[in-house]
């Protein structure tokens, strides 16, 4: 009988490379962030211990609440629209036609493009005077020259539409996979009972899709709370900060205003929001799987 520690030692070379990278770049930042949030800390390094001053500053900071509000507005605007659009697209891509692969590819293609590409596509297409979209509107005889980025409502519409177009494909695939998992026998049996297509959709398809819908909903809330790059690139957070998300404010506090301690503090707030959401999500997903 070998000594158990000798057996344990054999696993070390297999586990160590992952463990080192995981510990250094995933786990350690959580503790480092806590330390930073308790200090006056700039780009050069650690200055004075300030206790909870960064936290009290955050609670009193209107810009923190405003940008958190903007991020939350983005979550509210994109989540339901995303789930519904993803379902509609999945139903289209599940139609019994030779075009179904073309549908699926088209809906998914934007998802593989870089955020920088889709953002500048949006900027150039939405440009006033010679932008593709305004020219199309005018070619229908409508005399309008919308300034998409200058008006808060239009800016939000642009960001939401671009985000839906860019990311809906992923959720569509999740719906599509569940649609294809629904047993054909359910439809056959209901057919014999004389159900209409609408009744089949309402009483078979939708209930069968409920679990994946909830997973998609939660994943979407989680993903939307992390919004940053497309807003930074498309509107820069404007007009007048109307679309500026929390992560942009964190970035600016840290790297423009040279206050990494405060940036780390606000990151902690975001961390806890996301942590709670992902615990809910993982719990839910696990209970569905069992």
């Amino acid at each position: 009988m070998k000594k158990p520690w000798k057996q344990d030692l054999k696993a070390v070379p297999f586990l160590l490379p992952f463990f080192i990278a995981y510990f250094t770049f995933t786990i350690l930042p959580i503790f480092k962030g806590l330390e930073m949030s308790l200090y006056d800390w700039n780009l050069v390094g650690k200055l004075d211990f300030v206790g909870l001053a960064n936290y009290t500053e955050m609670v009193m900071d209107n810009r923190f609440w405003r940008t958190l509000g903007n991020t939350t507005l983005f979550v509210i605007l994109t989540t339901p629209t995303m789930v519904i659009l993803a379902l509609v697209l999945a139903l289209l891509a599940n139609l019994n036609t030779k075009l179904k692969t073309f549908f699926r590819s088209s809906f998914f293609l934007p998802s593989i493009l870089s955020v920088s590409v889709i953002s500048f596509l949006a900027i150039f297409m939405l440009q006033p005077y010679n932008g593709f979209i305004n020219n199309i509107i005018q070619s229908f005889g409508i005399e309008a020259e919308p300034f998409w980025m200058a008006d808060p409502v239009l800016a939000w519409v642009s960001i939401v539409v671009v985000t839906l177009w860019w990311t809906v494909g992923f959720n569509m695939i999740l719906f599509l996979a569940s649609l294809q998992d629904i047993p054909e026998a359910l439809y056959e049996a209901s057919e014999i009972d004389g159900a209409t297509r609408w009744e089949q959709f309402k009483y078979i398809t939708l209930p069968q899709l409920t679990p994946i819908s909830k997973v998609i909903l939660l994943l979407q809330v989680l993903a939307s709370y992390k919004v940053f790059a497309q807003i930074l690139l498309i509107t820069g957070g404007g007009p007048g900060g109307a679309t500026r998300p929390l992560i942009q404010y964190i970035y600016e506090a840290g790297f423009t205003q040279n206050n990494l301690g405060y940036a780390a503090t606000m990151s902690y707030a975001l961390f806890f929001i996301l942590l709670i959401l992902s615990i809910i999500q993982l719990r839910y997903q696990r209970s569905e799987e069992n």
């Binding site: 995981y22 995933t26 786990i27 350690l28 930042p29 959580i30 480092k32 962030g33 330390e35 930073m36 989680l222 992390k226 940053f228 992560i247 964190i250 840290g254 990494l260 940036a263 780390a264 990151s267 902690y268 975001l270 961390f271 996301l274 942590l275 992902s278 615990i279 993982l282």
Partner: peptide, 12 residues
């Protein structure tokens, strides 16, 4: 690690 969002730990 599944629950740790990279965006929220990027400053540290």
């Amino acid at each position: 690690g599944l629950m740790i969002p990279g965006e929220a730990t990027i400053i540290p």
